[in-house]
Computed example of a mutant assay.
Amino acid sequence: MRSGPGSHRRKSVPVDGAQEARPLVVADIGGTTLRIARWDPHTGNLSGVRRRPVSGITARPGLDARELQAGVVDQLSSELSDHLDAEASDAGIPAVGLSFAGPVTSDGLVTAAPTIWGEGGEPLPLGAVLGERLGRPVLVANDITAAVWRYAESEPEPFCLITVSSGIGNKVFRNGEVLVHPAGYGGELGHWRSDPSPGAARCDCGGRGHLGALASGRGMLSAARRAAGGDPAGFAGSLLAVHAKGRAHGITNEALAAAIRGGDPFATAVLRGGLRHLSSAIAAMFTTIGIVRYIVIGGFALAIGERYIELLGDELSQQGCFGMDPDGMRNMVRLGMTDDDHSLIGIGRMLTSGAFSGICPSTR
């Protein structure tokens, strides 16, 4: 495949030699958590990691998209400013890298953020807005695009990184680049319409039957609560009920993950329902572009751990992938690193690898 103008590949380093040696501030904002840290380009290590709840749709569900958008921008400005002030004793931070849970164009425009401010919201030149407030370049990339760069040097062949967290996203890395359109299209598997029925689960973006609504952490939580309400006797006898103190509305993602890890049939059946949709999406990617390595990250999947991969492998083998035997299908999927630093490390590597060339004019 040939790269387009929006492809994220290694090109010129976006900061000069003197700046490249200095530490950088990196941040990652998802549907529930904002993480900010200091990244050392020499060691590749993070330090001073701060975590804050995101001031978005999860924390403030009563506000409209415009109000949430403004609140998130203010939160990012304040938290990044505080972190930069804490780094004042250093020689100065030349740039900030921000990974963002939503599609981002090649010139740094955030076009949507369903898991952060829900349906709607105007396209936002987030890098430019934050750069003006903070007085230095702020480079913005999609969070999974950033996370890919954590694995790019260690993976021996093309791969697809899939995150299963508040939503679902993916990116394909091939021939030294992340495959994405300049307008930010591509890698938004969570918004593939997997269930076309009129009453299908509603996605944060406003659509129905999207993969993210059916198989993400939020989607699985809703499915578990529906299952508990629809089968009270089955729920009452489950390990999930123990973790949820017997209340369907008391089910949390933590309780669901713990029950699945414990082998609870009720909770496992709920997860299998979502994994059928995810396995279908993986099989479609395999069939169309021939990617045979799928690395799964994201808070929900990682909370379940290797059991998640085992169950996903089961569904893949039942789904079938043309030309691949059952063992081959199971071996296509594996769990990524078990921390939550993927996008923080990845955005740091993007800043110093040249992968941001063409993304943010303020760096040129």
Rank of each mutant, 00 (worst) to 15 (best):
S279E: 02
G169Y: 05
L312A: 05
G250Y: 02
G237E: 03
L130F: 14
G299C: 09
D16A: 11
G135C: 10
I162S: 03
D82I: 06
L24R: 06
A147F: 13
A146F: 03
L98G: 03
G358F: 09
G127Y: 02
P103R: 02
Y185S: 06
E306A: 11
D204E: 14
A281M: 05
D339Q: 13
I291Y: 09
H8K: 07
R9P: 00
R276E: 03
Q318T: 11
V104P: 00
P114D: 13
G212K: 00
G190L: 06
G206K: 12
P265G: 02
A215H: 01
A113N: 02
E188V: 07
V25K: 03
R60W: 07
R330H: 11
L46D: 01
P158K: 15
S81L: 14
S216L: 06
S154M: 11
G237P: 02
A244T: 04
R38C: 05
A215P: 04
I251K: 02
F173H: 12
R334D: 00
D143W: 04
G234D: 07
M337D: 10
G358C: 06
G199Q: 07
N170G: 13
V49I: 15
P137R: 15
W117I: 06
T43K: 12
G230T: 02
P156H: 12
V138K: 13
G234R: 02
S3E: 12
A201S: 11
R66P: 00
T163K: 04
L80M: 12
P196S: 08
G167V: 04
L130I: 05
S154G: 13
C205W: 01
W149C: 00
I297H: 06
V242W: 02
V54N: 09
A128D: 10
T338H: 10
R225M: 14
H210C: 15
A284S: 14
M332D: 02
H42Q: 14
G290I: 09
P14W: 14
N175L: 12
G186A: 08
S154A: 15
R150M: 14
G190K: 00
E157Y: 10
T115M: 07
E87H: 05
S7T: 14
A236G: 07
R50Q: 14
R133M: 05
A241R: 01
S317C: 10
A213S: 12
D327Y: 13
A59M: 14
M329N: 04
P232G: 04
I162C: 00
E153P: 01
M329C: 11
L189F: 09
I347S: 04
R51Q: 08
A21W: 05
R35E: 04
S77G: 15
D231L: 03
T145P: 00
L130Q: 06
R202F: 10
C203P: 01
A213E: 06
E177L: 10
G299I: 10
G323T: 04
G131I: 06
R202Y: 11
C205I: 04
I359T: 12
P53T: 15
S357K: 11
S362V: 09
S343V: 09
R2S: 07
L278W: 03
S357M: 07
G187W: 00
D143I: 03
